[in-house]
Design a protein around this nucleic acid. Structure first.
Ligand SMILES: [Zn+2]
Ligand SMILES: [Zn+2]
Ligand SMILES: [Zn+2]
Ligand SMILES: [Zn+2]
Lengths: 130, 130
DNA sequence: ATAACAAACGTTATATTATAACACTATGTT
DNA sequence: AACATAGTGTTATAATATAACGTTTGTTAT
């Protein structure tokens, strides 16, 4: 008996293309790239994205409306995500920093909020663009 | 002689409505609300928003595509923004915390990136929704 | 005052991002 | 088999945002 497949066909197709990409992909660019594989409509892409995000396989870079594969061991199913974004060339890197992760995951204030998750985006210039 | 006006007419109208609001406003909801004041097209709103963001009068809550007035002394012209977001009632509060601000503003890594700005969004449940 | 420039404006059209609704299919559990 | 859950395919539409163009207004320099 074969191992239960975790990802569906569409989910795997979308994940593959995001993992292969060197930069964050936008939903409609993903759509364009998977049309040869039979995915024809935006919803098929968005549904796959939603599931992949839930599984922590990918993240959405909110300020860019784009999606990247998870490369970080500290984000534990997308509860603690941090990105570095070059405002010139748009290079995006997931930040893998245990100190920040701990610091922010333990954040509390006196407002009565219970925090489960955060997303942090740093903006600046990369080496090349400086 | 009157003091040089900092904000244009449209900018002031848009700022007023955002400042009066108790929750983040979406661009098209702003548009709807200012139509009685003569602003008719999305672009007029988006241009005002862009300028107000540059001036640090308002911020965009990226994960919600919505806009709030700045209430924070540590974000210095929108270079260091942090928000607390209730995932149930969608209440959004700008976080005013010098420690976080200092900690993140001084963040460096060994990737060669020069950081100028960050945006942090915490997600959870507020007192009422818990 | 007037020329030159920059910023803001008004308008139409269009691009980009995302979801609603509905019927159907596949899969696993009892 | 009966049921529940997740995924699919499709069409239509909603929501968010920008391009392009010409005009107007405000500021600065001579
Ligand atoms: Zn990650
Ligand atoms: Zn760069
Ligand atoms: Zn602020
Ligand atoms: Zn709440």
């Amino acid at each position: 008996m074969t191992q239960t497949q975790i990802l569906s066909k569409n989910q795997q197709i979308v994940l593959d293309i995001i993992e292969k990409a060197k930069e964050p992909l936008k939903a409609y660019s993903i759509l364009f790239n998977v049309q040869k594989k039979g995915i024809k409509a935006p919803l098929q892409v968005y549904r796959a994205l939603e599931k992949l995000i839930k599984l922590g396989k990918i993240h959405k870079v909110e300020s860019r409306n784009a999606f990247v594969a998870c490369k970080n061991s500290y984000c534990r199913i997308s509860k603690a995500t941090a990105f570095s974004i070059c405002e010139s060339c748009e290079k995006v890197t997931e930040i893998n920093n245990s100190k920040i992760s701990k610091y922010l995951s333990n954040f509390e204030d006196n407002t009565g909020m219970t925090y489960k998750k955060y997303n942090l985006e740093f903006f600046g210039l990369c080496k090349k663009c400086r």
